[in-house]
Nucleic acid binder design. Structure first.
Ligand SMILES: [Mn+2]
Ligand SMILES: [Mn+2]
Ligand SMILES: [Mn+2]
Ligand SMILES: [Mn+2]
Lengths: 221, 221
DNA sequence: ATTGTTAATTAGGTTGGGCTAATTTAGTAT
DNA sequence: ATACTAAATTAGCCCAACCTAATTAACAAT
């Protein structure tokens, strides 16, 4: 069982399959093509190779799944990415919206030594600045509280923001300006056709549905 | 004048031409092939492309030179590399012999923002842990004292080590064990057929010629 | 059952950066 | 001048990761 070292593309395919699988029940070629910004035939081709390497399983015309080993690699890349994001924010003064882009490139080239060094330095954190869970060194996902998108609540209730499900820089800037960031507690007031009304400190905002779906929260006990 | 963003290979070619030019009068295809660990026809091919981009000049069967813009790119990569080496050593506890390898991969993917962040954090250093000069943000090489290889001295004299001209990990480990590292002062005793005899603190060592040529020193006033 | 629509695949091509084997050139030694 | 040697170049291939255009498969609607 050797490790033939994957290409950056291959790592990105595995990572993206993993991330899509967290949300959708099934991962289509098209989903992948969209996320990876390539055309569908490229996906078909690459998936064939990953299949031959036993990193994914593919039922043609159905969808694609990670194998155990494929999943481990995805988690390894995800760990790099999320540790890097937190490191850039904490130690190099990057702002919330800048970290993703830089981590996207660095994730493929840092060594295990680098990974361990920054994890140590930061005290083995479990979540990155977007609230995304950081896989452990053993490549297990840490326990995460049960989160629900902000637009799925029904009645007035206090909630704590757990995770922001986008990397769009303008959305992130908007959210940070509104203090809608992981760790902050807000009050869910009501959900009407115009959007979700929330109270942050003493201000009450309307959060459009398109934005609210990206804000995952847990209820405050 | 756009910046079409070079490939990692292309950046390495330019960087290597620059480094060879510091030492040799002329840069041959073969020198490049050796350093870049590729076969000579690959070099001929790549040099043609770099020539077409006006980054190098090439007189066939003579040698290759950087143009002004080619040199700027080489210095940019070199700045990334050397800042990274120092950063890894200072902030992530890398040892002397580990930094080169990691920097070799990171140099191509960090952003200008990352470069500026670590340069700031370290107070805009002028030399990396091997004593290699770090180009400034404006891509000028800093003034460096006049250095001579340890094996070129003639008479007993005190010298300060300025720069170590290798990235070989075993040699670097040897040297650090012997305290033969940039900044340290030693005494040059004599050069005989067996090698160079030096005094470090209270110990007197014989340094083989092959090693001594890599240790560049300035004379102590 | 037939048709239409959309997703997926196949066929075939491009580009970048390598390679080996064969050839040419420059420079040296006889 | 001639012959040899080593460096450089050319010719021709390979492989990864893309692409477009054409084809096929799945499935819903009539
Ligand atoms: Mn990536
Ligand atoms: Mn994140
Ligand atoms: Mn490099
Ligand atoms: Mn160095």
């Amino acid at each position: 069982m050797e490790k033939p070292r994957l290409s950056e593309s291959q790592e990105d395919y595995l990572k993206e399959i993993f991330k899509l699988r967290e949300v959708n029940e099934t991962v289509s070629m098209q989903d992948l093509a969209r996320k990876l910004d390539v055309r569908p035939p490229s996906v078909t081709g690459m998936i064939k190779k990953l299949c031959a390497m036993d990193l994914v399983e593919h039922e043609p015309y159905k969808g694609v799944l990670l194998t155990k080993t494929g999943e481990k690699i995805a988690l390894e890349v995800l760990r790099h990415h999320r540790l890097l994001e937190l490191y850039l924010a904490r130690h190099l003064n990057y702002s919330w919206d800048e970290i993703h882009e830089e981590a996207e490139r660095l994730e493929h080239v840092i060594s295990e030594k680098f990974e361990a060094a920054i994890a140590d330095l930061m005290g083995h954190p479990t979540h990155d600045p977007h609230g995304d869970p950081i896989p452990t060194a053993e490549l297990e996902l840490p326990d995460t509280p049960n989160l629900m998108p902000l637009n799925t609540f029904k009645k007035r209730i206090g909630v704590t923001i757990g995770r922001i499900m986008t990397q769009d820089r303008d959305i992130l800037n908007l959210l940070s300006r509104l203090e809608l960031i992981p760790g902050n507690s807000i009050a869910f007031i009501k959900n009407d056709s115009a959007g979700i009304r929330v109270k942050v400190d003493d201000n009450q905002y309307l959060v459009p549905h398109t934005i609210a779906r990206l804000i995952w929260c847990e209820t405050v006990d």
